[in-house]
């Protein structure tokens, strides 16, 4: 089973300008759990979410490489974000999913997946709901985050997923394994 999240479908043709500008302000985020913390990623940057299963381990790679999955004819690398954030490796269970994103590397389209412990919900956050520069210290490099959102009294770290899953830095990590 797979859930298709097509951002194009949310836009309707007969919305007026006011609504458009409001939509620009408000973004939909998918909230998920990784290493018992809540993170959010903009829906638009996600191409699909698949159930966890059939992951092939790749020995002799850094711990951030969770493995590869076979999706419609291609092998897609699955990244363990917890490991990237120097937290204990994720242990997948029945609630785990793999979130697939499209990125561009050297002019080519590239698909990449990352492991999440659970998918919580989709929330709409306006700019006002997001603390862009939180005063309290966050465990992450500021390049990785877009801010902190409050969802039902719970803090959600909004990730800049393209920076977190930078193809170059992951490739460097893989290569550094053999030095």
């Amino acid at each position: 089973m797979s859930v298709n999240i097509n951002p194009k479908k949310t836009g309707q043709s007969n919305i007026d300008d006011q609504e458009i500008s409001q939509r620009r302000q408000n973004n939909n985020y998918i909230v998920f759990g990784i290493a018992s913390r809540k993170y959010g990623v903009e829906v638009d940057s996600i191409s699909e979410i698949i159930e966890y299963g059939r992951v092939l381990k790749v020995p002799m790679t850094p711990s951030c490489i969770h493995g590869v999955v076979y999706l419609r004819g291609n092998m897609i690398a699955v990244i363990d974000i917890a490991s990237l954030f120097s937290r204990p490796k994720s242990q997948p269970d029945a609630r785990s999913s793999i979130v697939i994103i499209d990125c561009v590397y050297r002019g080519r389209e590239l698909r990449l997946g990352f492991l999440v412990e659970s998918i919580e919900r989709v929330v709409e956050l306006s700019l006002g709901d997001i603390e862009l520069r939180p005063e309290f210290s966050v465990e992450l490099d500021s390049g990785y985050t877009r801010g902190i959102g409050i969802v039902e009294k719970e803090m959600v770290t909004l990730l800049d997923i393209e920076n977190v899953l930078s193809v170059e830095s992951i490739m460097d990590l893989v290569e550094s394994q053999y030095r």
Partner: peptide
């Protein structure tokens, strides 16, 4: 046989991934 993809192109010790039957995968 499927290539491991760009991200894992520098992985050593393996030349790709094999899809066997409809369920099994193997390095």
């Amino acid at each position: 046989i499927k290539p491991l993809g760009d991200i894992l192109q520098k992985v050593r010790g393996f030349s790709g991934a094999a899809v066997i039957g409809s369920q099994e995968l193997a390095m």
